[in-house]
Design a protein around this nucleic acid. Structure first.
Lengths: 175, 175
DNA sequence: TTTAGTGCAAAACCTTTGCACCCAG
DNA sequence: CTGGGTGCAAAGGTTTTGCACTAAA
């Protein structure tokens, strides 16, 4: 953690997925390292923060703040979870995603053990799958060139139809 | 409007940007056609809906519902604008985007005269630029293959630093 | 005339904030 | 000990909903 990603095309801030090797080695963060990371921003590692990280690392999927709160062993205050997510986000320990339903979701960031991935969400049932892809550098360069903006970083969710819902749709057409 | 997009790689539902030619010809929708499009879904074309579309077509940029409401000549009810946006979205006359600030934004969809584009948002000042790019088919195929989902459609916003804010940042470092 | 749309008001949600007390460093 | 963190309660902001009335087709 804290190592610079060796993959030039990596678009994840603070990413260390590729630090070990090119094959997206799973990096399990050391609690001590996490604490250091927080401390370096004059933040403290507390029980609640550790508990939130534990839930996210166990689930390995995007969770809403309400879900995280419910999954906590010793449920604290919901407002604290909101504040915790802000802190963990700024420390690049979790990343936020948005499935267009008006609720923010969070998961451990790739800098924190998760694989380098994006999501595909079923338009019908909402089921989420992770996919490992990279944005081609040429695409990011084209965006920078057209807009003249720098440090381009994509925030994307892919939507589609999952196999189960596709099958269901076909059956409905037949019946 | 209503014509199928000729560009195979087009990822915009109901898109007709490329219907005229390959060079993203600007298509100005006929009110009569818009009305038909609504009527085909047993929806009515009302003053309020026309007014909202007029605002969006005039501004040609993503607007929040509050902004749309304020830009209306004869301001109706805010709740009506919310309901209108749902309707126009389902008719593919407007498309929704999300700049990760907790407020939905809308703009005329490419099926309704706008160019085929994505957004780049400044992380510092929030300024929005449009860019015309395409997702490579190979990327979408890879996502479909990994996830086994079909009808993959990307929802993306690009974030970066605009030229003005970049310059400002450099000045701060110097001073 | 029939069906959908609008305005108004209230509610539902998600998220943030103020403040007194508590705890990690 | 000191500055950040937590819990509680209240508020802020966006979005939705119920209902009587109005307007489009």
């Amino acid at each position: 953690m804290g190592m610079k990603c060796r993959k030039e095309s990596c678009q994840h801030e603070g990413c260390s997925c590729h630090a070990e090797d090119e094959k997206h080695a799973k990096y399990v963060p050391d609690p001590v390292e996490v604490a250091q990371r927080l401390r370096s921003r004059s933040l403290k590692m507390t029980h609640q923060r550790q508990a939130v990280l534990t839930v996210l690392q166990r689930e390995q999927r995007p969770l809403t703040i309400r879900e995280i709160h419910e999954l906590l062993d010793t449920a604290g205050d919901l407002a604290t979870v909101y504040r915790t997510m802000h802190v963990l986000q700024e420390a690049h320990l979790v990343s936020r995603c948005d499935f267009r339903d008006g609720v923010a979701r969070f998961e451990v960031s790739c800098a924190c053990g998760a694989l380098h991935h994006y999501h595909v969400i079923c338009n019908n049932c909402g089921k989420v799958m992770g996919v490992e892809i990279e944005f081609p550098d040429t695409m990011l360069e084209e965006i920078a060139s057209q807009s003249r903006y720098s440090h381009i970083s994509p925030h994307v969710e892919f939507f589609g139809v999952c196999p189960a819902c596709k099958k269901e749709g076909q059956n409905e057409k037949k019946g």
